[in-house]
Amino acid sequence: ELKPWIEKTVKRVLGFSEPTVVTAALNCVGKGMDKKKAADHLKPFLDDSTLRFVDKLFEAVEEGRSSR
């Protein structure tokens, strides 16, 4: 259920769609990584945008959990 949101956010942050980043982000969430681990995992794909993306990712995960 997070996938469409992650795809949109990747496109907004990077300026283009990147399926590799979407898959990696879903893996981070699925494995229950904390922000630091997720950022380390995604840094090779996102460079300077990593922290901004990870912040948005974790906000969305929290919103998703609290709306259930």
Results as ranks from 00 to 15, higher is better:
63 E>V: 09
9 T>Q: 12
67 S>E: 08
7 E>R: 06
8 K>G: 03
53 F>R: 07
63 E>K: 10
59 E>Y: 07
20 T>E: 13
7 E>N: 03
25 A>T: 14
38 A>H: 02
54 V>I: 01
2 L>H: 01
66 S>Q: 09
24 A>G: 01
22 V>H: 00
58 F>T: 04
51 L>C: 12
62 E>N: 10
12 R>Y: 05
41 H>T: 13
30 G>V: 15
57 L>D: 06
36 K>N: 10
19 P>C: 06
32 G>P: 03
18 E>T: 03
60 A>R: 14
60 A>S: 07
23 T>A: 13
60 A>Y: 11
60 A>E: 12
27 N>H: 13
3 K>H: 03
66 S>W: 07
1 E>A: 00
3 K>M: 06
38 A>N: 00
37 K>N: 08
37 K>Q: 14
14 L>R: 01
53 F>G: 05
27 N>R: 08
23 T>F: 01
44 P>E: 09
63 E>D: 11
37 K>F: 08
30 G>I: 15
33 M>P: 00
43 K>L: 06
41 H>P: 03
43 K>W: 09
20 T>L: 07
48 D>V: 05
22 V>K: 03
41 H>S: 11
4 P>M: 15
19 P>K: 08
49 S>Y: 12
17 S>C: 13
18 E>C: 12
12 R>M: 13
44 P>W: 02
56 K>R: 08
45 F>Y: 13
5 W>C: 11
63 E>R: 12
46 L>F: 12
46 L>E: 04
11 K>D: 01
34 D>R: 02
51 L>W: 13
9 T>F: 09
40 D>T: 09
45 F>P: 02
45 F>M: 09
54 V>P: 06
8 K>L: 04
59 E>T: 10
39 A>G: 06
62 E>I: 08
19 P>L: 02
35 K>V: 03
42 L>D: 02
21 V>M: 01
45 F>L: 13
51 L>A: 14
10 V>Q: 04
7 E>Y: 05
61 V>S: 07
25 A>R: 01
6 I>E: 01
17 S>D: 09
15 G>C: 01
29 V>K: 06
62 E>Y: 06
63 E>C: 08
52 R>L: 15
36 K>E: 11
67 S>Q: 14
21 V>T: 08
50 T>S: 05
66 S>I: 10
55 D>G: 02
19 P>I: 01
21 V>S: 01
13 V>K: 04
13 V>L: 14
5 W>R: 12
36 K>P: 08
35 K>Q: 02
7 E>T: 10
13 V>M: 13
50 T>R: 06
45 F>I: 12
32 G>A: 07
68 R>S: 11
29 V>R: 01
48 D>T: 10
57 L>Q: 07
36 K>W: 04
37 K>I: 06
46 L>A: 04
26 L>I: 10
41 H>M: 11
45 F>G: 06
13 V>I: 12
40 D>S: 10
42 L>I: 02
50 T>D: 00
25 A>S: 01
14 L>W: 00
49 S>G: 09
38 A>C: 12
9 T>N: 06
6 I>Y: 01
51 L>V: 12
68 R>L: 15
12 R>P: 00
63 E>M: 10
17 S>Q: 09
34 D>Q: 04
61 V>Q: 05
23 T>Y: 08
58 F>S: 03
59 E>F: 04
59 E>H: 06
54 V>S: 04
11 K>I: 09
42 L>T: 01
18 E>H: 14
35 K>M: 01
34 D>S: 11
48 D>K: 08
63 E>Y: 09
6 I>K: 02
23 T>V: 08
10 V>M: 13
8 K>W: 04
64 G>V: 13
37 K>P: 00
65 R>D: 11
29 V>P: 01
34 D>E: 05
45 F>N: 05
48 D>C: 06
60 A>F: 15
11 K>Q: 13
28 C>V: 15
67 S>A: 12
37 K>H: 07
23 T>R: 09
65 R>A: 09
44 P>T: 09
34 D>W: 01
2 L>P: 00
8 K>P: 00
3 K>L: 05
41 H>E: 11
4 P>I: 15
50 T>W: 02
21 V>A: 05
5 W>H: 12
61 V>F: 09
32 G>H: 08
15 G>I: 00
3 K>A: 02
45 F>W: 05
6 I>Q: 00
68 R>V: 13
66 S>P: 09
20 T>Q: 12
3 K>R: 10
16 F>V: 08
2 L>W: 08
33 M>T: 04
34 D>N: 09
28 C>Y: 01
33 M>F: 11
17 S>V: 14
61 V>M: 08
14 L>C: 04
51 L>Q: 15
14 L>T: 02
14 L>V: 00
64 G>K: 12
22 V>A: 04
27 N>V: 05
11 K>L: 09
20 T>D: 11
43 K>E: 06
24 A>N: 07
29 V>C: 07
17 S>F: 08
36 K>C: 05
64 G>Y: 14
59 E>P: 08
47 D>S: 13
49 S>D: 11
66 S>E: 12
28 C>P: 00
57 L>T: 09
8 K>M: 10
58 F>Q: 04
2 L>S: 01
64 G>E: 13
52 R>V: 14
4 P>R: 15
42 L>Q: 07
6 I>P: 00
19 P>G: 06
64 G>C: 14
32 G>D: 08
57 L>E: 07
54 V>F: 00
42 L>G: 01
2 L>T: 04
22 V>R: 02
12 R>W: 05
61 V>D: 08
32 G>T: 03
66 S>M: 12
30 G>Y: 15
59 E>L: 07
17 S>N: 07
6 I>N: 00
57 L>H: 12
50 T>I: 03
7 E>M: 07
59 E>Q: 09
13 V>F: 08
23 T>M: 11
18 E>M: 06
7 E>L: 05
43 K>S: 06
7 E>P: 00
46 L>K: 03
8 K>A: 08
52 R>W: 15
3 K>Q: 00
54 V>T: 05
19 P>Q: 08
4 P>S: 15
45 F>R: 03
43 K>V: 02
22 V>C: 05
52 R>N: 14
18 E>F: 04
59 E>D: 08
44 P>G: 06
65 R>F: 10
66 S>F: 13
62 E>Q: 10
10 V>T: 03
51 L>N: 13
64 G>W: 15
16 F>T: 12
55 D>W: 01
42 L>N: 01
23 T>N: 14
55 D>M: 00
56 K>C: 12
53 F>W: 00
39 A>C: 12
13 V>E: 10
44 P>L: 01
68 R>W: 06
68 R>T: 11
23 T>L: 10
30 G>P: 00
30 G>M: 15
67 S>W: 07
49 S>R: 13
53 F>Y: 02
62 E>F: 08
59 E>G: 06
66 S>Y: 07
46 L>M: 08
64 G>H: 14
49 S>Q: 14
32 G>N: 11
